[in-house]
Design a protein around this nucleic acid. Structure first.
Lengths: 351, 351
DNA sequence: AACCCGGGTGCAATCGTTTGCAGGACGTTC
DNA sequence: GAACGTCCTGCAAACGATTGCACCCGGGTT
C-alpha cells in the first residue's frame, strides 16, 4: 500500500479513491521509506555517483518494492524535455513509411524515447500545423518526404529541432537517399542486357523524390551509353501506373524505370493484360523495394531504398543534436535488387 | 518580445539565452499583459463561461499576439491527463496496421490527442513491458491483435484503461470483427458458383483471429451446404502461403479460404507457377482486403475487415471511457469483396 | 433598509520532480 | 592543530499550469 504523503505536517489533500494502480508511489513516498530526502532519492536515479553506494542500493531496492515510477510530466516540466520524438509521414497506409517508422521506433525505444506519429494525409497545408502540435509535446521531430513550402519548413525548423528524410533544404539537416548508387547499378544491368533506350515513368511533378530520381537518371544513364526518354508525370499510385501503360507502349523503348514500386505494379499488370510479355518484350525496374515487390508476379526488379535505416538515422541524428553534439545525418546508398522483370532486350513483335 | 516574468517582486531566475522560440510566453506573462491574475487567464481557456466576455476576449487576443501556448507538461502534471493515447501493434510493416493506425490517429487528432505508437515485433513477451512504458506517458492504450497471455492482459488492464482490437478477453473492452457476416457472404457466393467442398488454409495456431475465422467457417459453411476441410496451420506470411500450395493441391476441393491476403497471394503465386489455372480450376478467397489485394494479379477476392474503422472505434471507446461515460465498443461487420480469384466450380484436369 | 444571491475575480496551494547551494562529517596536508 | 578538500546529504526554489475557496460588488427580494 503506497503512502499517500510522507511525514510532514502540511495540509494533506484527501487521496483520490478510485485511481488505477498506475499512479502509485511518488518520490516523496520513496524518500520517506528510505529515510532520506527527496533530493537524495532523485539523485539515486539521475546522478548515481553522487550518492553513497549503500544508500543508493537501499533506495533502488525500495523503489522496486514500492513499484515507484517517475512521473514523466513532472520531469518534463522541470527539465523541459519530454523524451519523445515526433514523426510526420504523408500516409500511414503506404508501406514505405511503415518500415521507416519501425526503424525510428526501434532506436527511439532503446534510447528511452517514445515516438508520436502524425499522418498528413498527403496534404502539405496541414504539415506546419501538425509540427506545431508536435512541437508542444516532443523534443524534436522528423519530417518524412515533406512537401511543405520552403517558408513553412524554415518556420518548423525554428519551432523545434527538425530532421528531414527524403527532402532537402538549405540549413535544415536531412537524411537523404543517394539515388546515383542504385541508378548506376541499374544502368550497368540494363546495358549488360543490351538495352539502349529506356523510359522513365515519373511521379508527381512537385515531388522531391521524383526530381531527385529523374535527375539521377538523366545524369548517370548517358554516362553508361543509355538514352533516357521521359514518359510524363503520373500519380504515384497503382492506378497511376496503369494509366501510364499506353504511353509506355507507344514509346520506342525496351525498358522502363518507374517512379515507385506501386506504380510499376500497376503498369506491369496492365501491360500483361494487353498480352505483352514481361520481361521478354519489356524490362521494368521499380523503386523503393517495398515488401510486396517480391510477392508480385512477376517479382519486381527494383531499386531498394533503405527505409528502416533512414528512420534509425533520423532519430540518431536528433538524439545527437539534442545532446549538443550533432553528427552529420547520413546519405544512404540505394541498391538494385534483381528479380524477374528485367531480361535481355528484344524487339517487340508488333507496334 | 515575450516578458520573462510579470510584475511581482520575487526572486527571478535569469532567463535562458539560447532557447528556441517554441518555449515562449507563459500564462503568467499573458496574465500580466492582460492585467489579470493567472487564475483568470487560465479560466479564459478552460472555463470561458466563468470569465467576463470583454476580459476573455482581451485575454484571447493577447494570447494570440504573444503566441501563448499552454505547457503540456504542466497541464499533465496537475490534471493527471496527458492527452495522448498509446497504440500497440505487432508489426508496423504489416499494411493491415497502417490502416488501423491511420483511423485511430485521425480521430485522436480531432479530439486534441496525440498517438504514441509501439511495435512489438511480433513478440508477445515484450507486450506487457511496452504497455508499462506507455502507461506512464498516455491516458489509455489500444492493443491490436495482442498475443499477451491472459494474465498479462489483466495486469495491463489494471495499469491503465485499455481497449483490445481483434482479441477478446472477459472483462476487457474490445473492438471485434464479426467474421460471420463476411463468411456468410462467401458461403452464398461459393455455393452459387457450384462449390461443395472448400478448404481452409489456416494461420498461426495460437492466433486469436485464426480461431475466430475457422470457427466461423465451421459454423456458417455447413449451414449453407458447404463442407469445409481444414488444411493445416501455417505462418501468416507470403512464404507460408507458398508452402501451403502442395497441401491444397492434394486436397479434393474446388475452392479455398485463406487465413489472410498475404498468404493467399503466396499460395496463388505458387499454384500459378505449377500451371494451375486460377480461378478456373481453383477459387481462392483471402482475408483482410489489404491494399495490395487488388493490385495482385489475379486480383484477390477477399473478406474485407474494416481496419481504419476499427482504429477509430477504439479511440472513440477510449475517449468515452476517459470521460466517464463508456460506450460499448462495436463489433464490426466484415464483407466479401469480389474480384478475380473466384469462379464457377470445375473439376481439375488431372490429379 | 437589511439581506441574499450570484457572477466575476484573485489568492494560494498543489501536482512530482530537479538542482543550486549550503552544511556536516571525515580524512589530509602542512 | 588549524585549514582545506572531498563526499554525501538536505533545504528549498523553481517549472507552469489548475482549482477550491474567499471576496467584492451590484441588483433583486422581502
Amino acid at each position: 500500500m503506497p503512502l499517500s504523503s510522507g511525514s510532514g505536517g502540511g495540509p494533506v489533500a484527501a487521496s483520490e479513491p478510485g485511481r488505477r494502480e498506475a499512479s502509485g508511489a511518488t518520490l516523496r513516498d520513496l524518500a520517506a521509506a528510505a529515510g532520506v530526502s527527496v533530493a537524495t532519492a532523485s539523485r539515486a536515479f539521475s546522478r548515481p555517483e553522487k550518492v553513497d553506494t549503500s544508500t543508493r542500493e537501499r533506495i533502488l531496492r525500495l523503489a522496486a518494492e514500492l513499484k515507484y515510477v517517475p512521473n514523466r510530466a513532472a520531469q518534463a516540466l522541470i527539465t523541459g524535455r519530454t523524451m519523445s520524438l515526433g514523426l510526420v509521414v504523408p500516409d500511414l497506409n503506404n508501406p514505405f513509411y511503415g518500415g521507416l517508422i519501425k526503424g525510428a521506433q526501434d532506436l527511439a525505444r532503446s534510447l528511452g524515447r517514445s515516438v508520436l506519429i502524425a499522418d498528413t494525409d498527403e496534404d502539405p497545408d496541414v504539415e506546419l500545423s501538425i509540427v506545431e502540435h508536435l512541437a508542444q509535446r516532443t523534443d524534436a521531430v522528423v519530417l518524412c518526404s515533406s512537401r511543405m513550402p520552403d517558408a513553412d519548413l524554415e518556420r518548423a525548423n525554428r519551432l523545434c529541432p527538425v530532421v528531414l528524410v527524403n527532402r532537402e533544404h538549405a540549413g535544415v539537416p536531412a537524411v537523404t537517399f543517394d539515388s546515383d548508387s542504385g541508378v548506376r547499378e541499374a544502368a550497368v544491368h540494363l546495358r549488360a542486357l543490351g538495352h539502349r533506350r529506356v523510359g522513365y515513368v515519373g511521379g508527381p511533378v512537385l515531388s522531391f523524390s521524383d526530381a531527385a530520381r529523374s535527375a539521377s537518371l538523366g545524369q548517370v544513364f548517358p554516362e553508361h551509353g543509355l538514352e533516357v526518354v521521359l514518359l510524363g508525370n503520373h500519380e504515384p499510385t497503382f492506378e497511376g501506373g496503369r494509366r501510364a501503360a499506353d504511353r509506355v507502349l507507344l514509346a520506342d523503348v525496351t525498358a522502363v524505370m518507374v517512379y515507385n514500386d506501386v506504380m510499376a505494379m500497376g503498369l506491369v499488370g496492365r501491360l500483361l493484360g494487353y498480352g505483352l510479355e514481361i520481361p521478354r518484350e519489356l524490362s521494368v525496374i521499380g523503386w523503393d523495394d517495398i515488401e510486396f515487390s517480391e510477392m508480385f508476379t512477376p517479382a519486381l526488379t527494383t531499386i531498394r531504398v533503405p527505409r528502416a535505416e533512414a528512420g534509425r538515422a533520423a532519430v540518431e541524428y536528433l538524439e545527437s543534436a539534442l545532446t549538443g553534439h550533432p553528427i552529420a545525418p547520413p546519405r544512404l546508398e540505394t541498391r538494385l535488387v534483381f528479380r524477374q522483370t528485367t531480361a535481355r532486350a528484344h524487339r517487340r513483335r508488333a507496334e
